[in-house]
Nucleic acid binder design. Structure first.
Lengths: 213, 213
DNA sequence: CAAAGATTAGACAAACCTTTCTGTCTTTCC
DNA sequence: GGAAAGACAGAAAGGTTTGTCTAATCTTTG
């Protein structure tokens, strides 16, 4: 079963309709997909295990056999969701066939697409950290891993763009992305992706003396 | 009982130690302060009513007499916390006696102070929206009100700075602020305030042709 | 001082949550 | 085919949740 291209699982609507042959994936993955959807839409602690089981059509014993506890399910869901999201985001980015400055700007177009999905519920990691005990490093560690993976790609594009300080530009772009993600969640207005893109353009110009727009 | 100057209630540690005369405020405000603290640190849905009552030393009947339900308490806490935070933030900003470009940049210094508090748990509104049902506009409306109040001040300073498009600069600054807030929550690294400040400086320069730094 | 109103402590109901367990059914593998 | 493993439905345990109610006590106010 290869990974298919689809919207981020935060959006995760079509997770259960797979190509014929096997109508539904393994119960374990069905749990992940359904839990990701519910956690993102309604919040983690507000979503009971029974809800997930009913919606996934999975027995309770199966959940506890596969994941052990709800906390571990949460961690697995975050890993799964992060993987799905990055796959989607980077695949769409790759399809554009651009790099450097153009790629950095394209990221904000893709964010705009994400924000405009009616299943946009913000970033699963930001929301998860926000509703967990902030003195507990467990969930934060998962978020940091996700963040690091994204920063890595941004930095590669920043270097390709010829930034005089690629690391600094990377952090600037990341700040705009995070800001846009939470702003879009709160305002439900996808245009903040364009605002962020314009700001990014200015920052890139300042950092890349060679190719001014 | 006049409002005293203090750290934002997200930080809210010293909320119960008041100047002599009245050891503790009214039960109703004690509930707000304690609930704000717990909601911010451990999450709203993860915090039970009993916990709040025990820590505030308030009877359960008093909570339900004053607020009616937990949902209404949450709304009251968010309003209270937002008021406290804005009071703190704007007061500290005013004390600096700067305006325009200098004020916009000073905001990021103040954010840096906030981020470095060991009681920094991110923005109460962002976290609250993140852990609530995203199809329910109730909590989002409170967050939007808070956001609007902040945008208003940013815009005033953007205009004072002589920005050619003050509204656009306002949104840019706001994106950086929100990005820094969530980045600081996840990384627990206050230096992202400085990164955001540097980015803001670039954006302001681009928007304010008169006074380049 | 006295009355009115608020607060407290705590018991209590009803719902919900996580987790375990039992027993049956289906799939898989040799 | 037969055996072993996994999945299913659902009950039940044990704890926690929100919310209500009853008295007794404290605070405020006229």
């Amino acid at each position: 079963m290869e990974r298919m291209k689809r919207a981020p699982v935060c959006a995760g609507g079509a997770a259960l309709v797979e190509p014929a042959g096997r109508v539904v994936p393994h119960p374990s993955e069905r749990l992940l997909a359904v839990a990701a959807q519910l956690f993102c839409r309604e919040g983690i602690h507000a979503t009971g295990v029974d809800r997930i089981l009913a919606e996934a059509g999975v027995a309770k014993a199966t959940l506890y056999r596969n994941f052990g506890s709800k906390e571990k399910l949460i961690a697995a869901v975050l890993r799964y969701e992060g993987e799905q999201w990055r796959h989607w985001f980077f695949d769409v980015l790759d399809e554009r066939g651009v790099d450097g400055r153009e790629a950095l700007l394209a990221m904000f177009d893709i964010l705009g697409v994400w924000f405009r999905m009616d299943t946009y519920y913000g970033c699963a990691f930001i929301n998860a950290v926000g509703e967990h005990d902030k003195t507990d490093p467990a969930v934060r560690a998962l978020a940091l891993e996700h963040k690091r993976a994204i920063l890595q790609r941004i930095q590669a594009e920043a270097e390709a763009a010829g930034a005089t300080d690629a690391a600094l530009l990377t952090h600037w772009i990341a700040l705009l992305i995070d800001g846009a993600i939470v702003t879009a969640m709160i305002t439900r207005d996808g245009t903040c992706a364009t605002l962020a893109k314009d700001a990014a353009s200015v920052l890139i110009d300042r950092m890349c003396p060679t190719s001014q727009s």
